[in-house]
């Protein structure tokens, strides 16, 4: 060891003495840095562009419709006379589906995550996790289709009053869609709880259930909460399945058996239809889009904030 030291020193010195960068390399470095900057700029500029378009079009919309009516109006019928521009029915539809999805996905997702992280033998974990990835990879249009041909008939057989298109069937399939997200994120935070905490708990005569419920889950709680928020935000933004399954009837209701319309489904309806560009009806989708954007952004920020709090926790 000690004999090696002088060599290292001298080679360092020789490196330092020849440390003037050649101009070719300097230009090359500069080019690469610029190329990387451009790549980063593309995504940032796109985001800014999208928000700008949303804002500009939405502002034009609000010249025709008062923001008050938009936010607090309880009737949404921009495509029919008499026109009403109250976002509440759409917001309510979105919330209904997202809440329903949460009711389906949170208990199942959390239990699955706890099972995988604390109880499952290694081979089960290694089989289930890839399967969940597959579940996450199924296109949402397939979920929508399944909701109509499979889930909805079951609901209708149980509740006669249920519509063919209803919020409940959309909620269930969206819940299944966000399940993998909850499972994999929660499982990750559960497993990140230091082994030393589990050992401390076991050493005090705790059973596995004690360790899980009184130490591991509380320690990982804010991470779990963040996974819920991210998943719900995904449910809010989910489009295809709800467009197919939930119907196209904007309605201010909390009854999941009724046909409703979500914000995303409305945007689809107008974008595909023959609403002429430049009219108030057309501009509604920007106002709705902006509302949607704020809703999901708020949830994501909340989730990030909660997650950041976990990171500081154990040390």
């Amino acid at each position: 060891m000690s004999e090696g030291r002088p060599d290292i020193l001298s080679s360092n010195q020789s490196l330092l003495s020849g440390a003037t960068t050649s101009p070719v390399r300097k230009i090359g470095e500069g080019l690469i840095q610029f190329a990387l900057f451009l790549c980063a700029a593309v995504s940032v500029l796109t985001t800014i562009g999208i928000v700008a378009v949303l804002l500009i079009e939405a502002l034009q919309f609000f010249r025709d419709v008062s923001p008050w009516d938009f936010i607090f109006g309880t009737k949404w019928s921009p495509l029919l006379k008499p026109q009403h521009f109250g976002i509440l029915p759409l917001l309510c539809g979105t919330c209904l589906v997202a809440a329903g999805a949460a009711v389906v996905a949170i208990p199942i997702g959390l239990c699955t995550a706890i099972y995988l992280s604390e109880y499952a033998p290694k081979w089960v974990r290694e089989t289930v996790k890839p399967l969940l990835e597959i579940l996450a990879g199924i296109p949402s249009v397939v979920y929508g289709y399944l909701a109509i041909v499979f889930v909805s008939p079951i609901i209708r057989s149980m509740f006669e009053s249920a519509n063919v298109f209803n919020a409940a069937s959309a909620s269930i399939v969206v819940g299944i869609m966000i399940l993998p997200m909850i499972v994999s994120l929660s499982e990750e935070v559960l497993r990140a709880v230091p082994r030393s905490l589990r050992e401390a708990s076991y050493a005090l005569g705790a059973t596995k259930l004690d360790v899980t419920l009184k130490v591991v889950v509380p320690a990982a709680f804010s991470g779990i909460l963040a996974s819920f928020l991210l998943a719900i935000s995904r449910a809010v933004g989910e489009t295809m399945a709800v467009t197919l399954a939930a119907g196209a009837t904007p309605k201010l209701t909390l009854n999941p058996l009724e046909s409703i319309q979500t914000m995303t489904a409305y945007i689809v309806q107008v974008s595909q239809g023959d609403t002429p560009a430049g009219t108030v009806e057309y501009r509604t989708i920007f106002a709705v889009g902006l509302t949607l954007f704020f809703t999901t952004m708020l949830m994501n920020i909340l989730a990030q904030w909660v997650l950041r709090r976990t990171r500081e926790k154990y040390e």
Binding site: P194, S196, L197, E199, A200, S201, A203, L204, A219, Y314
Partner: peptide, 14 residues
């Protein structure tokens, strides 16, 4: 419960 253990690195619960 009868045989308690104290670990190398202190590991209080959060």
């Amino acid at each position: 419960k009868r045989v308690g253990m104290v670990f190398q690195k202190s590991n209080p619960f959060p």
